[in-house]
């Protein structure tokens, strides 16, 4: 049997270091998620307004963030702002900024979609029953929108967690960077460590994201 370099994972403090790296990745993505969900809900509601100016501004924001690869955004915020504006942002802060910008844009579009997918006669029959505007939103529209939204936004959260694997490019020592360091350090003693260590990284991402997507599938079934 070929040497798969599995022993390296548990050598010294390697496993703990990998977990620490995963912790950094999760911390950044979760902070970004916690900021982007409320902001996204707010912007998504604003996007359903008929005002052409707010509509245009938000459309441009959304398209720019969508079209731009996340890596380019990371470079602009981390390197670009340092040179152009003299900001001294750490890698982690830059990552949180980029992931929040991205998450907010995607979330707002999901919210907008969920809100406009509620048929007009739901508003009308609620009003016809005498419910006020705010009661209509509280009891009729928002509960239906949230049911459509939750599976989609959970999917967004797993995408944000996965995409943190890019932030090693701006010098953040997250799980993938730790893995590279471990492989480099053991190049002489275990030249095949790459397989085992990256396998461990794969499993860690999997264990972080799988429960979340299970939850999404459960909710989707429950609410149809």
């Amino acid at each position: 049997m070929p040497d798969l370099g599995l022993n390296v994972i548990f050598k010294g403090r390697n496993f703990i270091r990998l977990l620490g790296g995963l912790g950094v990745a999760l911390k950044i993505s979760l902070i970004a998620v916690l900021i982007s969900i409320p902001l996204g809900i707010l912007l998504g509601a604003v996007m359903t307004w008929k005002n052409p100016i707010t509509k245009a501004i938000l459309r441009i924001y959304l398209e720019i963030i969508r079209i731009m690869p996340q890596m380019v955004l990371l470079f602009i915020v981390f390197f670009g702002t340092t040179r152009a504006l003299g900001w001294n942002l750490s890698g982690e802060v830059s990552a949180v900024i980029v992931f929040t910008l991205w998450g907010t844009a995607e979330m707002s579009d999901l919210v907008r979609g969920a809100l406009i997918s509620i048929p007009r006669h739901q508003y009308e029959s609620s009003e016809a029953l005498g419910l006020s505007r705010s009661q209509t939103y509280l009891y009729i529209i928002i509960p239906q929108a949230v049911r459509r939204l939750i599976p989609l936004s959970i999917n967004l959260i797993t995408r944000m967690i996965k995409t943190t694997s890019l932030i090693l490019m701006i010098g953040v020592v997250e799980v993938l960077k730790v893995a590279q360091q471990i492989i480099e350090a053991n190049r002489m003693s275990s030249p095949n460590a790459a397989f085992g260590v990256y396998l461990a990284v794969f499993l860690m991402y999997f264990l972080a994201c799988w429960p979340i997507s299970l939850l999404a599938r459960y909710l989707e079934k429950k609410w149809r």
Binding site: P119, H121, Q122, E124, S125, S126, A128, I140, P143, Q144, R147, W223
Partner: peptide, 9 residues
Amino acid sequence: FQSYDLFPH
């Protein structure tokens, strides 16, 4: 109304 306008949730 003509359309079925019950609240589905």
